[in-house]
């Protein structure tokens, strides 16, 4: 259980670019257990933001809150706001399915459908109401996910499960991109991949920020340092520090941040 503190957290940071997502005093409980404690954070648009912190600090809970994935857990209760284009995604009239379409997600373990590579993307498109230019959209998404050249000759012959782990993860990224989200949430996307596949995903993340805002949860601090523009450090459900990645890794403001990234705890 996270002990409540009387003082209000004042770890706000205004990124230089505009923010696409903004949490305001956002808290979350699993039943009686508080997992996030009044997090106020502005996620910069068309940048990569990394969320780091020790196991159990609330990283995954936080990122899953940004597209209401936690709604699927019955005991979850939230307070505060998550603003997407200045609209609270937890407001009563908001459709969570639409939220998840516009704020896509890629998970730790690749989870392709046991269908053809083409269908892995086309299925989601049809479910989301796309009727025309399906093939064109599939190709475009596979290209954006840097997978097209590797799969273009067997789109219908191979299933998603026939691909390597790294290719499967890029297929899942392509699937998320196909329905044209604005934000891409990535929860430990490389933790199950070898260094070469990880490097390809990291290159891809770097390219994706030209068109999307990417938020990545990672245990690997060097990965956070390599791929992100901004970094948020969470500890015990609280946002300890948020800032430009270079500043966080070269000269963090808070001692807790420094102790964590230099390996003194965590």
């Amino acid at each position: 259980m996270i002990a409540k503190q009387e003082e209000t957290l004042e770890v706000h940071s205004q990124p230089e670019s505009g923010s696409i997502l903004q949490t305001q005093e956002f808290s979350l409980w699993y039943g009686k257990q508080q997992a996030l404690d009044r997090i106020s954070l502005k996620i910069p648009e068309q940048n990569v933001t990394a969320i780091i912190g020790p196991s159990g600090c609330g990283k995954s809970t936080f990122i899953r809150s940004l597209n209401r994935m936690n709604d699927l857990i019955p005991s979850v209760r939230v307070s505060g706001q998550v603003l997407f284009h200045n609209q609270d995604i937890y407001a009563g009239h908001i459709d969570p399915v639409e939220v998840r379409r516009r704020i896509g997600m890629v998970f730790q373990k690749p989870n392709p459908f046991p269908k053809s590579i083409y269908e892995n993307l086309a299925f989601g498109l049809r479910v989301n109401g796309y009727r025309s230019r399906i093939r064109e959209r599939v190709e475009q998404s596979l290209r954006r996910a840097a997978l097209w050249d590797e799969v273009k000759d067997h789109l219908h012959k191979k299933t998603g499960l026939d691909l390597s782990g790294g290719q499967q993860q890029r297929l899942c990224i392509a699937r998320a991109l196909a329905i044209e989200p604005e934000v891409l949430l990535m929860d430990e996307p490389c933790s199950a991949l070898d260094p070469l596949a990880t490097a390809k995903i990291e290159d891809l993340i770097h390219q994706l920020k030209q068109d999307y805002s990417v938020i990545i949860v990672t245990h690997n601090m060097q990965q956070a340092a390599r791929v992100s523009d901004y970094t948020a450090f969470l500890y015990l459900g609280k946002l300890i520090e948020f800032g430009k990645t270079a500043q966080i890794f070269e000269n963090p403001d808070k001692k807790q941040t420094e102790d964590y990234i230099t390996g003194k705890f965590g």
Partner: peptide, 9 residues
């Protein structure tokens, strides 16, 4: 060791 922060400095 990929040092950061005070260790890197």
């Amino acid at each position: 060791q990929q040092p950061v922060a005070v260790d890197l400095r």
